[in-house]
């Protein structure tokens, strides 16, 4: 019974990393990390520059060797995998210079020829929204369009797993949202996606699961909603008081937890937000405070991320 069950588990994870270590000389860049990415999952790998993020991704992609640990990507060791494995993965690397002498269609068709069962070139160009530019030389494309061409080249072989290394860095907001749609479409196609990004809103919009690497260690892992205990974090209630009113005039239980911060707003950290709001608004009606900019928020993914990185850099 154990055999088939174990195999089913293995085949359900697209990436399985155990105790991965990598050093350059005496400097350890990746210090024994574990990563597991399920099939069909969008996994976001976050971390500051120099945390070991790119090194880890390049080990998974088969570009770099490792010092220790087990790495399985689509059931094979990337360090030893051959052409058939390469045909099952798609890569969007950080740099995106394209051959200046070729058109979009020529380049996509060139790459299609590398694979045994490629997707249709026309459809793939359409999928990334470059149909109108298909006969344009790559030099005539904007930065965002080049990146989408990059995505088209990663998808042309119809891969099971796609690595997207900072796919929207340098994009304007509308290009970023368009790219997110393309990536969400990939989820619909059943692809597994390993995404690295500096943008927390990107991870939040796309990822099923995120992991944060700092100084070569995984410091947190979970869904974007629960990362770093975000779901249990206290709620921040903040507002501005009219100039005549001081924090001390707030009802006792609020005044104790209230803090006037540099932004000129009063922040109340609330364990029970409903009760705090009830007290606050009752008091405000009585004292004719408008609370026009009242805001109630949980820490954003970015807040949690910055805390994690900060705690790692300045351990207590």
């Amino acid at each position: 019974m154990r055999g088939p069950t174990a195999r089913a588990q293995v085949s359900a994870s697209a990436i399985d990393v155990r105790g991965l270590r990598k050093s350059y000389g005496a400097h350890e860049v990746v210090g024994g990390i574990d990563i597991e990415v399920g099939e069909g999952e969008i996994f976001a790998f976050l971390g500051p520059n120099g945390a070991g993020k790119t090194t880890t991704v390049e080990i998974l992609e088969g570009y770099r060797s490792r010092n220790a640990g087990e790495v399985s990507v689509l059931g094979e060791d990337p360090a030893a995998a051959g052409q058939s494995w390469r045909s099952r993965i798609g890569l969007v690397l950080q740099s995106c210079t394209m051959p200046a002498e070729l058109t979009v269609r020529e380049l996509v068709e060139l790459y299609a020829g590398y694979y045994r069962h490629p997707r249709s070139s026309a459809e793939t160009i359409e999928l990334v929204g470059l149909a109108e530019k298909r006969d344009a030389r790559t030099t005539q494309l904007s930065g965002g369009q080049l990146r989408r061409l990059d995505v088209a080249l990663a998808l042309i072989g119809d891969p099971e797993l796609v690595f997207l290394d900072e796919p929207t860095t340098g994009f304007d907001p509308s290009a970023r949202h368009h790219a997110w749609e393309v990536i969400s479409d990939l989820r619909e196609l059943g692809k597994t996606i390993f995404l690295t990004t500096h943008y927390m809103d990107e991870a939040e919009a796309l990822a099923d699961r995120v992991a944060v690497i700092a100084a070569g260690e995984i410091v947190a892992e979970g869904t974007p909603e629960t990362l770093g205990g975000r779901d249990h974090a206290r709620t921040d209630v903040s507002f501005t008081l009219s100039s005549a009113t001081t924090v001390a005039e707030l009802p006792g239980e609020l005044a104790a937890a209230a803090q006037l911060r540099e932004d000129g707003r009063v922040h109340v950290t609330a364990l029970e937000p409903a009760r705090a709001l009830h007290t606050l608004t009752g008091w405000a009606l009585e004292h004719r405070e408008q609370l026009g900019d009242l805001s109630v928020s949980r820490p954003t993914l970015e807040d949690v991320y910055l805390q994690l990185i900060d705690a790692n850099e300045h351990p207590q």
């Binding site: 992609e61 570009y63 390469r86 890569l91 690397l93 740099s95 051959p99 590398y114 072989g157």
Partner: peptide, 14 residues
């Protein structure tokens, strides 16, 4: 230098 060789090494092209 523009990363084209690196990209090609990520495809099945020998």
């Amino acid at each position: 230098e523009n990363g084209e060789f690196k990209r090609l090494r990520g495809t099945p092209l020998p």
